[in-house]
Amino acid sequence: MLLIRPIQGSDYPALLNIARESGAGFTSLPLDEQKLTQKITHSEHSFAADISQPGDEGYLFVLEDTDTGEILGTTGIEAAVGLSTPLYHFHKSTVVHQCKELGVFNPVEVLTVGNDYTGVTEICTLFLREPYRVGLNGRFLSKVRFMFMAEQPKRFAKLVIAEMRGAADEQGQPPFWNWLQSNFFNMDFSAADLLIGVGNKGFIADLMPRYPIYVNLLPESARRVIGQVHENTVPALKLLENEGFNHRGYVDLFDAGPTVEAQLKQIKSVRQSHRARVVITADADARRGQNQLAVCNCESQAFRATVSDDCRFDSESHSLWMSPAMADALNVNDGDAVRYLNLDKGAK
């Protein structure tokens, strides 16, 4: 059975392996043992905290195969970004150079550094190990965050963003960074990437250009990738676009990958997930459904979620019929509330 739960201290070796597999550019999981340990501890405290409004909490989940105990992937949520350390983005916009006397009207694109997303919620750290990128695994890992947010809205901001990994060349280097490095930074991308991952962002304010950058003055290789995602990130972006996320011109400082956003209450999986009461039955025919449902309990620290077609929503009683094994995995009893979401493609 596949189970998503909050990360715990014993998951450290698995998280370290995921950090190795994710590679450069995956800044939310730096290959730094102290930082990874801190992320686990911070997550444990966040899930346990009694929250009335979003703050500096970070929630990290893992996807576990309960039959083998193997960790297949991870996903996370930052409740309110930019509060303890600044969150920088470029914003691509248009300015107009106009001279009526000469009949010149020239709109040009510029990149401006800003902190416009301070205080918003960020979904992050979505990584599914390559052997398990099959079936509904990726969709389940992505959508479970929205089910948790729908169940715990006080923990999160009204606006939700996701920073998408930017395009890279055959050597794994972002073309946009190559231009930035040659003009403003005297360090390799891997060094800058590590500094960002461990939260050391002071060098950004010190070294980044302080004035708008005219896009048409950049080399073609850098211009071409502004707002483009890494080839491995395309499926994740499509999932978010299907949820209602949009790109409004904000891109990452180093690889120019797009940042997408959506209002929490308008996210598709938030709107389409619903609560139901648990009915536990050993009768396979009574609980057999026609759809793959993601189901989670309504807890925080003891949060559990799984996916199965061996459960059925009964509209007359507004209840979800499930097996004893599924109820045990979710830590629920007869009459408890759960939240469910249809994972099948084309679900309304």
Rank of each mutant, 00 (worst) to 15 (best):
G9I: 03
G9K: 13
G9D: 13
G25S: 11
T27E: 06
K35E: 12
T37V: 00
K39P: 00
I40Q: 01
I40Y: 00
H42K: 12
H42S: 12
A48T: 10
S52I: 05
Q53F: 10
P54G: 05
G55S: 10
D56L: 07
G58V: 11
E64A: 00
T68G: 02
E70Q: 13
E70C: 01
L72P: 02
S84W: 05
L87K: 08
Y88N: 08
V95P: 03
C99R: 11
C99Y: 06
E101D: 13
L102A: 14
G114L: 13
N115A: 06
D116F: 08
T118I: 05
V120R: 09
E122W: 02
T125E: 02
G138E: 05
F140E: 02
V144A: 05
R145P: 00
F146H: 07
M147V: 14
F148S: 06
R155S: 10
A157I: 04
K158Y: 01
L159Q: 14
Q171H: 15
G172N: 13
W177I: 15
W179T: 09
F185E: 11
A192K: 11
L194F: 13
I196L: 15
I196M: 15
G197R: 08
G197N: 11
V198A: 07
P209E: 07
P209N: 10
Y211H: 09
V215Y: 09
N216Y: 13
L217G: 03
L217C: 07
P219R: 05
Q228P: 03
V229H: 04
H230G: 04
E231S: 10
V234N: 02
P235N: 04
L239Q: 13
N242E: 12
L253K: 08
A256Q: 03
A256R: 05
E261M: 13
L264H: 06
S269I: 09
S273I: 03
R275E: 11
A276P: 07
R277E: 03
G289Y: 00
F303Y: 14
R312T: 02
M322R: 01
A329N: 11
A329E: 12
L330W: 12
N333Q: 15
N333H: 14
A337S: 15
V338R: 07
L341M: 04
L343Q: 00
L343W: 04
K345S: 11
